Computed example of a mutant assay.
Amino acid sequence: MGVTIRPQVGALPVRFDEDGTLEILLITSRRSRKWIIPKGNPMRRLAPHQAAAREAFEEAGAIGAIEGRSRGHYRHRKRKARRQIRCQVAVYVMTVERRLERFPELGERAVRWFKVDDAREVIRNRKLRELIARVSAELVSSFRPLAELPD
């Protein structure tokens, strides 16, 4: 009998600070308090990227523009009722435009902005760290500060 892998969707919430430094918004998991990205199960009537954006709102109060295509995936194990469930998370980049002070899971998780290298240090999942390194390099290489944009 094969192993069932449950699909999940996740948002990689990002922003560029005033100096043009890329930052990543991370949350802690409820039970183990590990630093992770907002993620959850696909939702009926929502495209996968829209479900990822909903998770970012519910878990971190993040609102912004989310890409329609996944930038990659990683796997993790989730504990539920004394058993482990294997999950594969499709990750969508979300450019955070603002964060709300009140959101559904406020008080259940820590929420914090990290510089990319710091985010990679606190995340335990190796595949997620590698995905963040690759995606952040792509985002930084394509970023142009407003001062450099043509008139």
Rank of each mutant, 00 (worst) to 15 (best):
R86D: 15
R33C: 00
R109Q: 10
V116Q: 04
D151W: 03
K115N: 06
R124V: 07
V89D: 12
R79L: 15
A147G: 04
R15Q: 09
N41H: 08
R71V: 11
K78E: 14
E130P: 02
R129D: 02
C87T: 13
R33S: 01
I36Q: 11
P42E: 08
Q88D: 06
L26P: 07
K115Q: 07
I123D: 06
L22R: 01
R120F: 04
R33L: 05
P145Q: 02
C87Y: 04
V89I: 15
A53E: 06
L25Q: 01
M94L: 15
A62I: 00
A119C: 14
A65T: 00
E97I: 04
I36N: 12
D17N: 15
S141P: 00
R102D: 15
Y74H: 12
I37C: 10
I123N: 03
P145M: 05
E67G: 13
E108K: 10
R30W: 00
R120Q: 07
N41C: 03
L131M: 09
G64P: 00
A52I: 02
S136Y: 13
A90N: 09
A51S: 09
F114D: 02
V91W: 06
H76R: 14
A119H: 10
A47S: 09
R77F: 14
G64S: 00
E138I: 04
R86Y: 11
R6F: 10
E138K: 07
D117G: 08
L128A: 15
P104D: 06
W35R: 11
L100I: 00
F57C: 11
I85K: 01
H49C: 08
A11W: 12
R120N: 02
R99W: 01
K39A: 13
Y74M: 15
K127E: 14
S70K: 08
V111G: 06
W35H: 13
L26C: 11
E58N: 08
R134Y: 14
I5G: 02
P150L: 03
A65L: 08
A137Y: 10
F103L: 01
A11H: 12
T95H: 11
W35Q: 08
L12Q: 05
E55F: 11
M94Y: 00
A137M: 11
I36E: 12
S70N: 07
L149G: 02
M1E: 10
A110G: 05
V116P: 07
C87P: 01
E130S: 10
V9N: 08
K115P: 02
W35V: 12
D19A: 10
G64T: 06
A119Y: 08
G61M: 07
A52T: 03
S136I: 14
R31M: 07
R33V: 01
Q8H: 05
F103C: 04
N125F: 15
Q8L: 14
L46F: 14
I24M: 05
N41G: 04
E59K: 15
T21H: 07
V91F: 07
G68A: 13
F16P: 11
R71M: 14
G2W: 13
R33T: 04
